[in-house]
Each structure stands twice: as structure tokens, then as C-alpha cells.
């Protein structure tokens, strides 16, 4: 079976000629939750943007389900950026209509149920919501799709710990067993129990790509402890 994500010599340099990603080779299999971890500036967001076609690679390519980023890959990738991408004047229910209009795999009933669970009124405008509530709305929208690959950039960064638990449960409950979740975060301790695999990135290169169980059994360490050791300042 074709891997859901394959990076072949993927490189991206910005205008200062420094490589944010340097000749990255990576393969992600289906049906896993993968943590993309690394310090600031390690290339996590760059990789995520390249997968979503928001950046043009300097070299190499990223293949999603065997295809270069484009219309067909955008149909199967559900992406949560680390910023608010909804028009602030939109009502929450308008955002749901928007997703229903453009994504054939969007399940509006699932979205409304999650909104009720998190006590978010669908009739309010996004600009009246707190930063955390906006992040929840975006995560609900992204997780209400039946995508093959979910790419979540800092999905729990701006929400309180109680909501964090709900969101993690939401992620676990709402993705298809065959789907893959690639999520980047600094809050490793909070999420490591849900991860199947972790990728540590440093200076645009992977320094570790291992199953979480392997780390626990072979190195007798949690991912959080290992991360602190590898990236000690």
C-alpha cells in the first residue's frame, strides 16, 4: 500500500539561505498518531506547510497518498494551522456551512455535537470568542472531516488543561482507524499517551523516528524525558 506521506529529499530554504528543512526523507504509514516534535525553528511548521501546499519546496518533494500537493491531496488532508484562519466576522455556524460547501468529507452533525459538548454557541461571531474558544472551533472543524491524513500544528497550545483532555479525546474518537494523524506540539507530556510514533526534528533533519513503545521499553524513558535529553540547551 502507498504510504500516506512520503518525503523524498525534501528541502526548503528561506530568503536568508538557511535551510528550514534539509534533505528530509520520511515515510509515514497509515493508521497511526505521530508526534512531530522539536524545538522552535526545527522545521516542524515548514514541513506541515509543505505537506499542505502552502510552501514551494526548494528541493525534493512531499507525496501525499502518492500525489504531489494539489487539489486531490487537499481533498484527503485535514489541516489545522497554528493560527486563526477563519474570517472573524463569520458566525460559527457559517464556518460549518463553509466547510460543508467545500469539503465532501465534512460531517456537520459531528461538528454541532462537539460544539454542544464544549458549550460553544453556533450563533456567535468568531470575533467575540476567546483565543482558546476559536482554537476549539477550528479543531472541531478539522476533526469533523473524514480525512485520510490529519495535520495538526499545535492543536492544544492555546487551550486550558480541561479542554485539552476533551480535545485529545475528540481527536482519538473522531478519526478513522485507517487515517493518520501528524501533530506537532511542545506539550509532549500531555499528548504522549496518545502517540504511536514520534519524530524528533532538529535543524530541519530528523534525529529520531521511533515508535513510542520502543522508547518506553528499550530506553525506559518517557517521550517527554527523552525530548528534554535530546534537546537540552
Amino acid at each position: 500500500m502507498i504510504p500516506i506521506l512520503e518525503c523524498k529529499g525534501l528541502s526548503k530554504s528561506y530568503h536568508n539561505n538557511q535551510y528550514a528543512l534539509d534533505n528530509l526523507n520520511l515515510t509515514l504509514e497509515r493508521g497511526q498518531i505521530i508526534g512531530l516534535l522539536g524545538p522552535n525553528g526545527s522545521g516542524k511548521s515548514t514541513l506541515i506547510k509543505l505537506i499542505n501546499g502552502l510552501l514551494i519546496p526548494t528541493g525534493g518533494c512531499a507525496l501525499i497518498n502518492g500525489m504531489l500537493p494539489g487539489v486531490e491531496t487537499k481533498k484527503i488532508v485535514s489541516y489545522l494551522p497554528e493560527r486563526t484562519y477563519l474570517e472573524p466576522s463569520m458566525k460559527v455556524k457559517d464556518a460549518i456551512t463553509y466547510f460543508t460547501d467545500f469539503y465532501g468529507d465534512f460531517q456537520s452533525e459531528r461538528a454541532y455535537k462537539m460544539l454542544r459538548d464544549l458549550e460553544i454557541d453556533a450563533n456567535v461571531r468568531l470575533k467575540t470568542l476567546s483565543k482558546g474558544a476559536k482554537e476549539k472551533v477550528q479543531l472541531i472543524l478539522v476533526m469533523s472531516r473524514d480525512a485520510m491524513l490529519y495535520v495538526l500544528d499545535e492543536p492544544i497550545g492555546g487551550v486550558d488543561p480541561a479542554a485539552r483532555d476533551y480535545i485529545l479525546r475528540t481527536i482519538l474518537m473522531n478519526y478513522n482507524e485507517d487515517a493518520t494523524i501528524l501533530l506537532s506540539t511542545h506539550l509532549i507530556y500531555d499528548i504522549e499517551n496518545v502517540l504511536d510514533r514520534v519524530i524528533f526534528l532538529q535543524n530541519g533533519r530528523p534525529v529520531l523516528n521511533a515508535a513510542v513503545d520502543e522508547i518506553r521499553t528499550e530506553q525506559k524513558k518517557s517521550v517527554d524525558v527523552l525530548f528534554r535529553e535530546v534537546f537540552r540547551c
Binding site: 499542505n52 501546499g53 502552502l54 494539489g70 487539489v71 486531490e72 487537499k74 481533498k75 488532508v77 489541516y79 494551522p81 493560527r83 486563526t84 484562519y85 477563519l86 474570517e87 467545500f102 469539503y103
Partner: peptide, 13 residues
């Protein structure tokens, strides 16, 4: 701008 993160990931060219 930020909205581009949604617009440019819609399944359209």
C-alpha cells in the same frame, strides 16, 4: 494573510 491558510488548502486550484 492568515485566512490564506484556509483558502489555499481548499480543494480548488
Amino acid at each position: 494573510s492568515d485566512e490564506g491558510y484556509l483558502t489555499n488548502t481548499l480543494p480548488v486550484t
